[in-house]
Design a protein around this nucleic acid. Structure first.
Lengths: 222, 222
DNA sequence: ACCTGAACACCGTTCAAGT
DNA sequence: ACCTGAACACCGTTCAAGT
């Protein structure tokens, strides 16, 4: 293999590994085994070097992760054909970002606090669902409305990714089932009404509807 | 101090620490020093016990965090006076949840990948802002619209919290400033147009406007 | 300039034993 | 039933030294 010509003065020891190699190897580890398997030690050994050699190419692990995301975005974000209608153009552009990030679950990691299914939050969910029903929505659409508000508030991606992870790890549906079984229909009538369909309703992908609603709201004359 | 009567059969050794004590102490640590200072070892020593004693009251650290959030929600979520109009009722209920979570920054932790300010994402931001302008919004309102979409897509809370943390750690504004300085006004005219006002515009709190728009969109007849 | 070895100061969790 | 001690299998990062 020919040596590339050295464009800048070759002072000191020639580099054995490059920043690109570090990022590329990190990407392989993350794609193969998930982001929490990416450690500086493993990365070093995979690259055939020592942990400390990495610190000469990235400042620290946090910078490595930022570089990794940047690399990911550059490789996967493709510019779609855009419709002429401005409103639709917004939707398509946002959906493209969403799709790219959704395929990149390691972005989120940790947290999201399950489903905010805490007893004390249910009353608020009730108000939202009931309010949407009072506005003329069907219970099903009302649940979707609540889901959209919660998604776009706490982050649709974050929630779905960790939920999927949870589902893979063990069946923690028991907790949700218990909450719904203990529901008082007098205090929380709407939730009780939809309790049986909650699982299939929340399994549906309603991202685009929620997004369209948000855009509608933004461009509507107030 | 009087011993509480033992309601169930007292077999074996009497407990020295309770689950409530574990959670309460964990809360104190988190409130004082942040969530990543909460370790099983420190929690144990703060409680005057050993790490392994904790595992008799919580299954593992993840369960401890879930319990901690539940405890937090129970203590801070207060039911507000609700307006009669359903649409306003939704807004108030959702805003109450938002407010509680916003005051609880340790929920998020890590990630959010800065601002998705990657070169390759800017084009999409441009399309969104330009589309909103084409719909009749002022550039300022268009930026707010984009911010709302991004917030409600990736999670308003998550973004703001980590942004605030970053600001406290060091001035990483340099990166954003460099991106905006390098902007090509022919390719990304709207972004270039608002580049100078980006910082103050994004510093404004537009949560309620975005939320109202989302609700408007959801209850609007399509 | 770039890399290495050894060490620092930690982690969460398991296992076997004690009371 | 509840708690302890010791150990396992790790972390990210610093420091001083080598080439």
């Amino acid at each position: 293999m020919p040596q590339p010509p050295a464009p800048r003065k070759a002072t000191g020891r020639p580099p054995r590994i490059s920043r690109e190699e570090v990022i590329g190897t990190a990407r392989r580890i993350v794609d193969a085994d998930g982001v929490d398997r990416l450690t500086m030690r493993r990365l070093a050994s995979e690259i055939g070097s020592t942990p400390m050699a990495l610190y000469h190419h990235v400042r620290n692990k946090e910078e490595l992760l930022v570089l990794l995301l940047d690399d990911y975005a550059t490789r996967t974000l493709r510019r779609p054909e855009l419709p002429d209608r401005p409103r639709e153009r917004i939707v398509v552009a946002a959906a493209a970002i969403h799709e790219a990030l959704a395929a990149c679950p390691w972005i989120v990691e940790v947290l999201t606090a399950d489903d905010l299914m805490s007893e004390s939050a249910l009353w608020f969910v009730e108000q939202i669902v009931d309010g949407l029903v009072a506005c003329g929505l069907s219970p099903e659409r009302a649940v979707h409305g609540y889901r959209a508000i919660w998604y776009y508030t706490a982050g649709e991606i974050v929630i779905r990714t960790t939920a999927a992870r949870r589902r893979a790890e063990d069946d923690r549906t028991t907790y949700r089932e218990r909450v719904f079984a203990d529901l008082d229909p007098d205090e929380l009538p709407r939730l009780a009404q939809v309790a049986d369909h909650w699982a299939p309703l929340t399994a549906e992908d309603t991202y685009l509807e929620g997004l369209r609603a948000l855009v509608d709201g933004l461009v509507a004359t107030r």
